[in-house]
Amino acid sequence: MAAPGGAIMEARALGLRFGAVEALKDVSIRIEAGSVHALIGPNGAGKSSLLNCLSGFYHPWTGAVLFEGRDISATRPPERARLGIARTFQGIQTYPSMTARENILTGFHAQMKGGVFSGLFRPRSAIRQEEEFATRAEEIIDFLELEQDRHRTVGDMSYGLRKRVDLGRALALAPKILVMDEPMAGMSPEEKGDLARFILDIRDHFGIPVVLVEHDMDVVMDISDRVSVLEFGHVIAEGTPTEVRSDARVIAAYLGGAPEAEAAA
């Protein structure tokens, strides 16, 4: 496990190619324990490709992905989930005909022990496990302020609440790191504010680092500890939000406008 302030996950000199297109070129980042790390950049910069390498949906052609110091470059997404790497997607990955509570309970599947025997005969250990998952599901429901919606069918919920349930399923994995792809896409300003608050609480109260791709720069600058900026598959800048905001390369490639110092002149 990463020491406090150390890197829990690293990408080292990642290269990824799709035919003649180089999606990632010598990309390296460090996700520090207890931090929110944002990936930003114009469309086609390689942000989602990098997330997919971190979570196992793509395997880099060159370089390595390390988690808690272990090379996991060749491991598949289910194996990474069992290691503690949870992933949310830009689209909603919930079961619309199930309730919020039932959806969150499905997130515990990677931790289930026992096979057909447990399912058929329900030994005491299986019953204890079910009770533990039910208790933890209720804790997640309380944390995400879904108490009034626990028994509502997800398909009948607003978009923002469905995204919250999706986050609850990821938290059910008891993650050591949370990887999020454009979690606020399609949300209203109020819904974005709620999700930003939950992300900070996940970092502060649970100590779970978060790495996310996000296009809302106000949100990125408000909640991130570190920001990496990609352009054409390269990392062109990395630093605190303040450092990145005033980086001339970032302004030219993505943010637009003049650096703060110049704007004040």
Rank of each mutant, 00 (worst) to 15 (best):
A86S: 15
A81S: 13
N103K: 11
G84F: 06
R70Y: 02
T94R: 01
V116F: 14
M98C: 02
L105M: 13
L83G: 01
I85H: 03
A100V: 15
I85Q: 07
F108Q: 02
G91M: 10
G84A: 03
R70T: 15
I92K: 02
L83W: 08
L105H: 05
A81P: 09
A74E: 03
P96H: 14
G115K: 07
T99R: 14
P77Y: 00
I72S: 05
G115W: 12
A81G: 09
T94E: 02
I92L: 14
M112G: 00
R82I: 06
P78H: 11
T88W: 02
E68V: 05
T94F: 02
L83M: 15
R87W: 02
F89R: 09
G119M: 13
A81N: 07
T75H: 12
V116W: 10
A100N: 01
F108V: 08
F117D: 03
R101T: 00
E68F: 00
M98A: 09
R80H: 08
I72K: 01
T106D: 00
G69I: 07
Q90H: 12
N103M: 06
A110R: 15
P77H: 01
F89G: 04
P78D: 01
M98K: 13
I72C: 07
M98W: 03
A110S: 12
T106W: 08
R70M: 11
Q90R: 15
I85K: 02
A81F: 11
D71I: 12
G84R: 01
R82D: 05
I72T: 05
E79R: 12
G114F: 11
E102P: 00
G114A: 08
A86D: 09
R80K: 13
Q93N: 15
P96E: 09
N103I: 11
I72H: 05
F117V: 15
I104G: 08
R87M: 08
R82G: 03
P78W: 11
E102H: 12
A81D: 04
K113L: 08
G107N: 04
T94A: 04
Q111T: 11
T106M: 12
T99N: 03
